[in-house]
Design a binder for these strands. Sequence first.
DNA 1: AAGTTGATGCAATTGAGTTGCAAAGTTGTT
DNA 2: AACAACTTTGCAACTCAATTGCATCAACTT
Lengths: 136, 136
Amino acid sequence: MNENINNKLNAKSIKPTAMRQLVLHVLAEQKSAVSMQELEQKFEKADKVTLYRTLKTFEEKKLIHSIDDGTGSIKYALCRESCQCRPEDLHVHFYCTECKQTYCLNDIPIPSVNLPVHFTLENINMVVKGICANCI
Amino acid sequence: MNENINNKLNAKSIKPTAMRQLVLHVLAEQKSAVSMQELEQKFEKADKVTLYRTLKTFEEKKLIHSIDDGTGSIKYALCRESCQCRPEDLHVHFYCTECKQTYCLNDIPIPSVNLPVHFTLENINMVVKGICANCI
DNA sequence: AAGTTGATGCAATTGAGTTGCAAAGTTGTT
DNA sequence: AACAACTTTGCAACTCAATTGCATCAACTT
Ligand SMILES: [Mn+2]
Ligand SMILES: [Mn+2]
Ligand SMILES: [Zn+2]
Ligand SMILES: [Zn+2]
């Protein structure tokens, strides 16, 4: 388990400090994306700034991706192994208005859009809101 | 011009106060979506809370829609006549990373997504980031 | 005119995110 | 081991958009 965590950190050339191991460990066991605040509460004692910078580092190194689901707080979730965070790696996200959870729909790629002429694409954010399967 | 503004307000059963007429007038002449702050600066003297509440009212009455483009400030744009803000009325939005403008791509409907079983759809937000035609 | 309702203006608060800076930890060199 | 150079962490303070409270003002109603 710890070896696995360290491997993941090393693979993305992130120095495996105690804090980073802990954060990655917690992130890995989430079923849905989490906010900084939620993450903070999962630790006995955690400074939110350290958490903030840890997440920034993880995101820069493409270990996690952030999701702006429109709720006012950014959510974070682990990237898949193969993910390079390129437009073709992007997937749809789902925000359940019942349980307030944000899910990565990893298997649903963002459909392509025909932009007007001379518009070039860098990135797409697609968040579907509704009721998830658990809340029906 | 003023009759037109009042007609639009009446059509959505919004009492046409001076403030609301002004705000709608300014909104109508925008080529791209605007934030509350940008709107505030377009008036000599405008209280941002009144503006805030005006926009809330307009949005509730479906005269305008808000766009969370991921920049940290919500943008607002007029709805089209026919718009009921139902999922089928939704369109793609485009944020230009060069000119920092957010555009309604009114003619580009949001492509449909095949959600996993038992997920029900209420709403979709799709924001494409890139470079707009003016900034190429 | 008095009463009721809704709209507006100003001050203050919220809350997520961010920055500054010093202390603590790490790594490499003499 | 001692030192310097660099990175990471923790605490306090700050930013900035959004929001709330409350008093005042305007527009109808009886
Ligand atoms: Mn995701
Ligand atoms: Mn729009
Ligand atoms: Zn749910
Ligand atoms: Zn542009």
